[in-house]
Simulated assay, not measured.
Amino acid sequence: MALAAAQAAPAKPEALPADPREARHERCIALAAQDATAARSEAGRWQLAGGGYFAQQCLGLAYATEHNWAAAASAFEQAARAAELAHDVRSANYWSQAGNAYLAAGDAVHARAALDAALASGDLTGFARGEAQLDRARALVAAGQMPAARIDLDAALATAPADPLAWLLSATLARRMNDLPRAQKDITQALARAADDANVQLEAGNIAAAAGDEAAARKAWSEAARQAPPGSPIQATVTKALSQFSTR
Rank of each mutant, 00 (worst) to 15 (best):
M1L: 12
L3H: 03
A5E: 15
A5F: 12
P10M: 05
K12T: 00
H25N: 02
A30Y: 03
A30C: 12
L31H: 01
A32Q: 02
A32F: 02
A32L: 00
T37G: 11
Q57C: 06
C58T: 00
L61N: 10
A62W: 01
A62L: 04
A62R: 03
Y63H: 05
T65P: 01
S74N: 10
A75Q: 00
Q78H: 01
A80H: 03
R81T: 03
E84G: 15
E84I: 13
R90Q: 09
A92Q: 10
N93D: 15
Y94E: 10
S96H: 05
A98F: 06
N100S: 13
N100K: 14
A101W: 05
Y102E: 05
G106E: 02
A108K: 11
H110E: 05
L115E: 05
L115S: 14
G130Y: 08
G130H: 10
G130E: 06
E131R: 05
R136S: 04
A137F: 15
A139K: 14
L140N: 03
A143T: 06
P147E: 07
P147T: 05
L153C: 08
L153G: 07
L153A: 12
A155N: 08
P161F: 00
A162H: 12
L168P: 06
S170F: 01
S170P: 03
R176S: 13
N178L: 15
A183C: 15
Q184L: 02
K185C: 02
D186T: 01
T188N: 09
A194P: 01
A195V: 10
A198I: 00
Q201G: 10
Q201M: 08
Q201V: 09
L202V: 14
N206T: 13
A208E: 01
A209L: 14
G212E: 11
E214S: 11
E214V: 15
K219R: 05
A220R: 08
W221D: 09
R226N: 13
Q227I: 15
Q227F: 13
G231R: 07
G231P: 08
A236S: 12
V238E: 07
K240V: 09
S243F: 03
Q244M: 15
S246K: 11
R248S: 09
